[in-house]
Design a protein around this nucleic acid. Structure first.
Length: 615
DNA sequence: ATGTACAGTT
């Protein structure tokens, strides 16, 4: 019998032979083997359905091996009803006595690992409990993983309680997954991974997985400083980090924009012989780009032997972030030439590269390519990139036409990018009406008020501007305070506007005064129109001098030898005045100043900025 | 069992 030759087309032949096989013969073992192999190569739902009926016809649905394999395969097709009918063929409520925890575990694991099947993993866990099948220590990691993927905190907590009841809370595997579950479930909460930290702290034995889960949890929750601190604590305890720990630490480092830390991490990876997996290299590319050393990111990228779509996308986004949009699209083309198909994220990357570098024609080309060549249906983000691209290029009317023609409902992000363009291009009447509409629809979003207030400032309508300000006060809203971070001697310093918490604050303010005098002599004129307060011009200049990035730059000028490049990281977009002042500072003090904005870099050198004032 | 890229902006 040549039934081991397997493919979809072999099914019919196989069916023909197998249905006629008498039970309990040696041939029956062949049947079992055949089914198992067929399940391995099963790649379409149709094939899977055929195998399903085959199993039932052959009475193999009591065979634990076949059952287990079938259950696992069913998750690929989200075929929960098939799995149920094989598990409980006669009676949907009572499983045969042969169904033990192992079988349910297989099923739960299979569904927990497939993105869209996680609810079914929980369903089978409930079924298991309903039938009083006792879970064992292998059950919990799978169930917790499903809870983590669906961010079901309450459910996760209940599973935790039942885990304690069954006495598995001491198992290191289970505990690690528990930490991970609590980390994943708290991501939308403001309190951070508190429950996870509690389990973490109470774990008597912590291995690299325990630490990775916790560090990754802080990094994903946006608490990057805490993630890095935890990594330092890990080193003290002597547990050696693995490449997965390092990916999380690098991601936190990228978020902080701490280049010195990042360089140290790379040498640490080298020193400890930590495996440079593709994911680790991807994290390095992202980190170097977001910390301002995009050339080093390119170096890592070029030295990689195997690249994934994430590697290419990180490189494209990295280059775009530094205003090197042309290089970014070249990398995108190179990727396609090498036969790597871009995904939707890669297209977001290349479209935003076009948008930030004014490459309107290329943007249109890639947008069309996405649908025509790769059959990727554009999402709201892709439309957003296109609207932003047209708006930035000063083609506000075309942007509006694009919005009208697109098949999805525009969201607030898209309207805000139009208002920003109106502000920059002097289309103030249009900007005002769109901003008002935004406030009407989304009254709790601070940035809508700020946008409207900026437009009134440009129109010199101070009374209206004050009114907007009052609306914000009534609702108890505040502008997010701007802050600037700078790395100096292995410390990270953070400045906010008018900050006086620094030890050397007097010297810093004197330096700011001096900087102001020097750059004015070189031709700098303060841009006072952006100051939100309705005060006289001289006070406005004063308010500008207190901006956090000027404080950080003054601190850097005081603390580093002449000629050293200065790197700072802002939490918001750089303001017009600081952008202009920094250009003059780079010339007058002969310093290269690298500023990381909320979403991109400005390299100031000799009075010019890499963004070409296009940002 | 733990990990990487993602439109606008204050």
């Amino acid at each position: 019998m040549q039934l081991t030759k397997l493919s979809s087309s072999a099914i019919t032949t196989t069916t023909f032979f197998q249905v006629h096989l008498p039970p309990h013969t040696t041939k029956r073992r062949v049947a079992e083997q055949t089914i198992l192999s067929l399940l391995t190569t099963c790649d379409t739902l149709t094939t899977f359905t055929q195998i399903h009926s085959l199993i039932l016809k052959l009475g193999l649905h009591h065979n634990p091996l076949v059952l287990t394999k079938f259950a696992a395969t069913s998750s690929h097709f989200n075929a929960v009803h098939y799995a149920s009918s094989v598990l409980f063929p006669n009676d949907q409520t009572t499983p045969p006595p042969s169904h033990d925890a192992f079988l349910f575990n297989t099923l739960i694991r299979a569904f927990a690992q497939t993105t869209h099947s996680k609810p079914h993993a929980l369903r089978f866990y409930n079924t298991m409990r309903r039938h009083a099948v006792s879970p064992n220590k292998f059950t919990f990691p799978f169930v917790l993983k499903a809870c983590a993927g669906m961010m079901r905190l309450e459910l996760g907590g209940a599973v935790h309680a039942s885990m304690v009841k069954f006495g598995f809370e001491e198992d290191p595997h289970v505990r690690n997954t528990l930490v991970h579950m609590y980390c994943c479930c708290c991501q939308d909460g403001s309190s951070g991974p508190v429950s996870a930290k509690k389990v973490f702290d109470e774990s008597p034995v912590k291995d690299s997985v325990t630490w990775s889960a916790m560090i990754g949890g802080y990094a994903r929750a946006g608490n990057s400083a805490r993630a890095v601190t935890l990594f330092r604590e890990m080193q003290v305890t002597g547990v050696c980090p693995d490449e997965i720990t390092m990916v999380s630490v690098l991601s936190a480092c990228a978020d902080l924009g701490a280049l010195e830390l990042g360089k140290w991490l790379e040498s640490y990876i080298e020193r400890k012989n930590i495996m440079r997996s593709v994911e680790l290299c991807n994290a390095l590319i992202d980190m170097f780009a977001k910390c301002g050393d995009v050339d080093r990111a390119v170096k890592v990228f070029r030295e990689m032997k195997v690249r994934t779509i994430v590697s290419w996308t990180s490189m494209i986004v990295g280059l775009a972030m530094h205003g090197r949009g042309l290089e970014a699209v070249l990398v995108f083309d190179e990727m396609m030439e090498q036969g790597v198909d871009p995904d939707d994220v890669a297209f977001i990357g290349v479209l935003s590269a076009c948008s930030h570098s004014g490459l309107v024609d290329k943007g249109h080309y890639y947008f069309n390519t996405m649908e025509n060549m790769f059959s990727i249906v554009p999402k709201i983000e892709h439309y957003g990139c296109m609207v932003d691209m047209l708006s930035r290029a000063g083609r506000v009317n075309e942007a509006l036409e694009f919005v009208r023609a697109m098949p999805v409902e525009p969201n607030q992000v898209i309207w805000r990018s139009i208002v920003t363009a109106c502000h920059a291009r002097g289309e103030l009447k249009l900007g005002e009406s769109v901003a008002k509409e935004l406030i009407r629809r989304e009254p709790s979003h601070e940035s809508n008020y700020v946008l409207l207030s900026n437009i009134y400032a440009k129109l010199l309508r101070w009374e209206k501007k004050t009114k907007v300000r009052e609306m914000m006060d009534v609702k108890g809203m505040r502008k997010i305070p701007g802050s600037t971070m700078i790395e100096m001697n292995n410390e990270i310093y953070e400045f906010v506007a008018g900050d006086k918490s620094h030890d050397q604050y007097k010297e810093i303010y004197e330096m700011v005064e001096e900087m102001g005098r020097e750059i004015k002599r070189a031709g700098y004129v303060p841009t006072t129109s952006q100051v939100l307060l309705d005060i006289d011009e001289e006070d406005k200049e004063d308010a500008l001098y207190r901006h956090s990035e000027k404080l950080a730059i003054a601190f850097a000028l005081l603390s580093t030898p002449p000629g050293t490049p200065i790197r700072i990281v802002k939490n918001l977009r750089v303001c017009e005045d600081c952008h202009s002042a920094t250009k003059f500072i780079s010339k007058v003090y002969n310093r290269e100043i690298v500023v990381r904005d909320r979403n991109r870099f400005h390299h100031f050198k000799n009075g010019l900025c890499s963004c070409g004032d296009f940002w």
